[in-house]
Amino acid sequence: MGTQHLELAAPPEPSTEPLRNGDTIPLSHSSAYPTTERTLASVASVLRGGGVEHLEVISTEVNNILSGNADRIRSLIGKLDTFTTALNAQRYEIARAIEEVRELLTIVVDNDATLDRVLTDFPPLVAHFADQRELFTGSVEALGRFSDVTGRTMAAARADLHENLRLLQRPLKELGRAAPHLPGALEILLTLPFTADEVGKFVRGDYINLSPTFDLTLSTIDNSFLAGTRFSGALRALEQAWGRDPNTMVPDIRFTPNPLTAPGGPLIERSE
Rank of each mutant, 00 (worst) to 15 (best):
L175V: 02
V203K: 01
R166W: 04
P193F: 08
E187C: 02
K201L: 02
N223W: 00
T213I: 09
R152L: 03
E198R: 13
E163W: 06
L235P: 00
H162A: 12
S219C: 09
G205E: 01
K201R: 15
R236A: 03
A185N: 05
T229R: 10
G228V: 11
G151R: 14
E187L: 01
L168S: 11
Y207S: 14
A179E: 11
R170L: 13
R152S: 03
G176F: 10
H181C: 05
V199M: 13
G176I: 09
L161I: 06
G151Y: 05
P171A: 08
L235F: 15
S219K: 02
L172C: 08
N209H: 10
N164H: 07
I208W: 08
G184I: 05
F202S: 02
L216N: 07
L218M: 15
L165A: 05
P180Y: 11
T213C: 05
K173I: 05
E187G: 03
A196R: 15
A155H: 06
N209V: 13
A237K: 15
F214L: 15
A237N: 12
T220E: 11
E174T: 05
L226C: 05
D197F: 01
G151F: 07
A157G: 03
Y207A: 11
D206M: 06
F225H: 13
R170P: 00
G176Y: 10
T153H: 04
R158M: 06
I221T: 03
K173L: 09
R152P: 02
A156T: 12
P180V: 06
H181I: 08
R166A: 07
T191Q: 04
L216I: 07
K201A: 05
D197L: 07
R170A: 13
A157L: 13
P180E: 10
E174H: 03
T229V: 10
K201I: 01
S211L: 08
A155V: 04
G151K: 10
L189S: 12
L226G: 01
D160H: 07
M154Q: 12
Q169A: 14
A159R: 07
L172S: 12
V199F: 08
A196D: 08
D215V: 11
F225N: 04
I188F: 03
T220N: 13
D197M: 03
A155K: 12
R166E: 06
G228F: 12
P180D: 09
E163M: 07
P193L: 14
L182I: 15
R158A: 14
L172A: 14
S211K: 15
R158P: 01
L226I: 05
A227C: 06
R158L: 05
T191G: 02
S224E: 13
G200N: 04
T229P: 00
D215I: 08
R204C: 00
R170D: 09
H162Q: 11
I208P: 01
F194H: 03
G228E: 12
F214C: 07
R236S: 03
I188S: 05
A237G: 11
S219V: 01
A156G: 04
I188C: 03
L182E: 04
N164W: 06
R177Q: 08
A237R: 14
L216A: 08
E163F: 06
G184H: 10
F225L: 15
R158Q: 12
